[in-house]
Write a protein that binds this DNA or RNA. Structure first.
Length: 202
DNA sequence: ACCGCGATAGCCT
DNA sequence: GGCTATCGCGGTA
């Protein structure tokens, strides 16, 4: 399990360091593991795409201001959740949106959660689509409002651990779904593992 | 593969 | 009352 100090850094740095790490989720008596392959950083002080811009405080976004290492889960578009890892220290509003995960085990279980199909009916593209989007991964890994504020450095239900030792290139590009954010639209704050098949978008 | 569009409810002003 | 850090579908190619 990554310790609390790991999260106490700039959201852009944390977003890159989270690539290749493994999200561990205990649910339904299973231990689900998935490699983080795509992330985005958000920084309330300078980023019009961030919920907290320009360092405003509302009830919903309070987790953003907490010490790094907790989860910020919010509800979006009337039906979905997004899962963020809070970075930095108390008082700074910043975090990392987890956008895509490569499932590492329990594929059958994940398929039934997402599509209500078994492994025998699944095609290659179904497996790729299990968690190739911020809300898709919340459905697959059972992350919702009850995980809001969850400490990722304590407890067994939800945490992040070191991944396999491997080398990869990181692609840095613009973020998704924030066209309204004026100049922040062009910030290259989306990161993914080059060549990985489980990312949401090139 | 890519493009357009509707669903849907909590949050904020 | 007007958004929204999305998804999945149906149409066209």
């Amino acid at each position: 399990m990554l310790e609390k100090d790991f999260y106490k850094k700039d959201a852009r740095e944390l977003a890159k360091e989270l690539l290749g790490k493994v999200l561990v989720r205990k649910v339904d008596g299973k231990v689900l593991r998935g490699k983080i392959v795509e992330t985005e950083s958000y920084i309330g002080a300078i980023d019009k795409a961030c919920h907290a811009y320009p360092n405003k405080v509302t009830e919903r976004i309070k987790p953003l201001y907490e010490d790094g290492g907790i989860a910020y889960v919010y509800f979006i578009y009337g039906k979905y959740f997004c899962f963020n890892v809070i970075s930095g220290s108390k008082g700074t509003a910043e975090g990392v949106l987890i956008r895509a995960i490569e499932p590492l085990n329990e594929i059958d279980y994940l398929l039934s959660k997402r599509f209500n199909i078994g492994i025998e009916k699944a095609k290659e593209k179904d497996i790729r689509a299990i968690a190739n989007g911020p809300s898709k991964l919340c459905i697959a890994y059972n992350i919702s409002k009850s995980e809001n504020y969850h400490k990722l450095y304590e407890g067994e239900e939800l945490y992040i651990e070191e991944g396999e030792r491997e080398s990869f290139n990181i692609v840095e590009t613009t973020r998704i779904g924030i066209d309204y954010a004026e100049e922040a639209r062009d910030f290259p704050w989306r990161y993914y593992i080059e060549g990985n098949k489980y990312i949401s978008k090139k």
